[in-house]
Computed example of a mutant assay.
Amino acid sequence: MNTTTHIPRITLVGAGPGDPDLITRKGLRALATADVVLYDALSSDELLDETPAHCQRIFVGKRAGCHYRKQEEINELLVTTAREYGHVVRLKGGDPFVFGRGQEEKVHAEAAGIPVAVVPGISSCISLPELQGVAPTSRGYADSFWVLTAHTRDGGLSDDLFRAARSNATVIILMGLGRLDQICALWDAEGRGELPAMVIQNGSRPDERCWVGTVNDIAPRVLAERDRGPGIIVLGETVRQHKDFKASVIACATVI
């Protein structure tokens, strides 16, 4: 029986968009002192090498459409492992609070009397467009950007998507590749079929892919070529900044 006294605590760490070098120094320090790490499918496996030899590494899934464990199970696992082992790091892709349900995990742990620290992460919503040379906001293109999820709790399209389709802001949609055709149809119904569009899959990773075009031509290409990896959708005039945008539009016009 283990009689060592452990002081339970939890650190929610944002792992960044995929490239392990994009985690913060504070996130790495948390991993270096972890007794347990609960990691999801969107964080880089290389980051697990930053944990001590004694650290238990527990995969908890969490990818759109594929949940290895239910959120309620993860919440409870955070509490039980912290009480038994000490410092638990919850390693989450991107930022813990941008559609990551980090707040739910924090509230549950604190209600159980366990202190929780938060280490913000670089979200894919801004980093991945930037890595493609596309600024979410840029003078002459867009004065603001909206970050949305394609899914509601009941499985329908978010009402905010309908509002966003009428906005001049850059619209960045997370967890929406499975509904790309519906999203593009929504924008097209608002008379915005020629709006520049970009899809990034497996962003910042070695197998990253990027498609650029317009609302009315991008969906068939992406749906025919994409894999099951995570991705984001960017709709707005700022996509014109991408180095391949003009060539892509010409190519699509030639095919048509």
Rank of each mutant, 00 (worst) to 15 (best):
L91H: 05
L48Y: 06
S158W: 01
A82M: 12
S144D: 09
Q103I: 11
S158N: 03
C125S: 10
G121Q: 08
F97H: 10
P96D: 09
A64Y: 02
R69N: 14
R63G: 02
R166H: 11
F99N: 12
R139Y: 06
L91A: 04
P115C: 09
S167L: 04
C55G: 06
V79S: 14
G121K: 12
D160W: 01
V134P: 09
D95N: 06
S167A: 11
A164G: 03
C55N: 06
Y68E: 06
R139F: 04
Q132T: 08
L148Q: 00
E50W: 10
L148R: 00
K106V: 14
E46Y: 13
H151R: 12
Y68F: 12
P52W: 11
E130A: 13
A164P: 03
N75C: 07
F97E: 07
G94L: 05
I122N: 01
H108W: 10
Q71M: 08
I58L: 14
Q71C: 04
T137K: 03
Y141V: 03
G61H: 05
N75A: 07
T51S: 03
L91W: 07
F145H: 13
D49R: 15
Q132S: 12
I114N: 01
A64I: 04
E46V: 12
L47Y: 07
C55A: 13
F162K: 10
E76W: 02
K106Q: 15
R90D: 05
D45V: 12
A109H: 05
P120M: 06
G133T: 00
P115K: 04
I58H: 11
F59G: 01
D160Y: 03
Y68T: 07
Y68D: 05
L78E: 01
G102W: 13
L148V: 02
T81K: 15
G65A: 02
V79K: 14
V147C: 13
T51E: 02
G121H: 07
A165D: 07
T170L: 02
A64D: 01
G113W: 09
G121S: 10
T170M: 01
G156V: 06
V147Q: 08
G86Y: 13
P120F: 04
C66T: 06
S144G: 15
G140K: 00
R153D: 11
A165N: 11
S44E: 06
G155R: 09
L77N: 15
V119W: 03
H87L: 15
P129S: 13
F162S: 09
D45A: 12
G102Y: 11
C125Q: 02
F97W: 10
A135K: 15
